[in-house]
Design a protein around this nucleic acid. Sequence first.
RNA 1: GCCCCCUUCGUCUAUCGGUUAGGACGCCAGAUUUUCAUUCUGGAAAGAGGAGUUCGAUUCUCCUAGGGGGUACCA
Length: 471
Amino acid sequence: MTQKVITRFAPSPTGFLHIGGARTALFNWLYAQSHNGQMLLRIEDTDRTRSTTKAIDAILDGMKWLGINWSDEPVYQHQRADRHREIAEQLLREGKAYHCYCSPQELTKMREDARAKGKKPGYNGMWRERDPALAPDNIKPVVRFKAPDEGDTIIKDRVQGDIRFANKDLDDLILLRSDGSPTYMLSVIVDDHDMGITHIIRGDDHLTNAARQAQIYEALGWTPPVFAHIPLIHGADGAKLSKRHGALGVEAYRAMGYLPEALRNYLVRLGWSHGDEEIFSTAQMIDWFGLENIGKSAARFDFKKLENLNGHYIRESDDAHLIEAIKASLHEFEGCEDLASSLGDEDWQRFLQAMPGLKERAKTLVELVNSARYLFVKRPLSFDKKAAKLLNDEARTMLKNLAQTFTDLEEWSLESIETSIRDFSEQQDLKLGKIAQPLRAAMTGITTSPGIFDVLYVLGKHETLARLGDL
RNA sequence: GCCCCCUUCGUCUAUCGGUUAGGACGCCAGAUUUUCAUUCUGGAAAGAGGAGUUCGAUUCUCCUAGGGGGUACCA
């Protein structure tokens, strides 16, 4: 019989949901979805001093925005400390763990000495067999796991393959701190076990941990879950992700105007592939996703490709959806604060109308909003350099004549506007471009915009004539 | 230092011993065009280096180099 797949995403709430974490969450979610299983969420907050509720909110919020949902309520690891301690006590009773009375200073010295001699740097196990009667009474002991010191521990990793670690290189890790609180290493194991996790998909920075955890599973007589350690994401320069190149929280991507579906599509292709496919619907991702197609090498974050994907998704999105996405995030778009508070229903209505022409040329929602500014500006318009240059005397005269033509237009439709301008260009013996460019400048204040007929149509006859009249 | 992992166009990747090494982003050129985009066509661009194994290696093995991760009373 096959067991139901249960994966988990287990962020530590010490910061926002960064891009690497988002991808880990995505992979876990996809794997669970594709196996009709479920993904659980566990907040690894055993380090009480570094965990914040603000970070928890940011993580939950980021996941919701990305459309990655989890089953059940999130598990808060620190709330399960008693259970973790119970397991440590059990190990202690069974002689698989012991009290260690080393002071932090002793440990530091131990590490330095070992390093100087070119030996493995870990704890040397001095309290392993030592009589507790010898314990100094000014030291509160920690509980250490009595790790096997001979043989190998092999991790059968679904991405990395079989990885062999010599047990002599793995030291006796701490299970319970001197204040009695459980460490991450203990908590993960107990929680993954108790939560029934079948597959652990996480960053390969945890690969060494997997070996140590496997030893504990062994000591407890528990069967370890399937491991899949996915490669990390690097910055554009190949170095560790830093703020400059991508290690931002997902909310920063939202603020830059990326669509969650684009980010998801970008992220899924970082380290995973399905032949030559590049664009995936959510259903396809779920359908095709598998651990066997995850690569083993780290990937660099490339904004250019994300941007391209985002442009694709913007073009594919329906107009109302884009308006909704913009409405939801406009207040956090850089340089758009003014619009967030000033747009009224009529403006949004116009925006929606202009959307088909606008979305063709935007790579981010921020660009999209900015390209729509001509719809919202108050008369008289100010012109940028290039626009001002286009509006020379000759052009102004021409536009005045054109305005007359518009005034006489009874019907204000795309067709009638186009016909009248084309007729006008014939009458005046002017190329369309000679009319369109100055007209665009006069209507928008800049030299790039959607098709000029679109612009005029959405602006409406009244506003068009008014802007022309301002010249 | 020690342990582990990785290495195909600039970037993300396909290839599961035999291919003109494919696709995508980006870049360059051209077409379309009222601007900017979009769209379409074409182009330049890769197996880190060295040994093996094999009739034949990008693919398997080893070494070197480079990169990454770990090495906490962090997770």
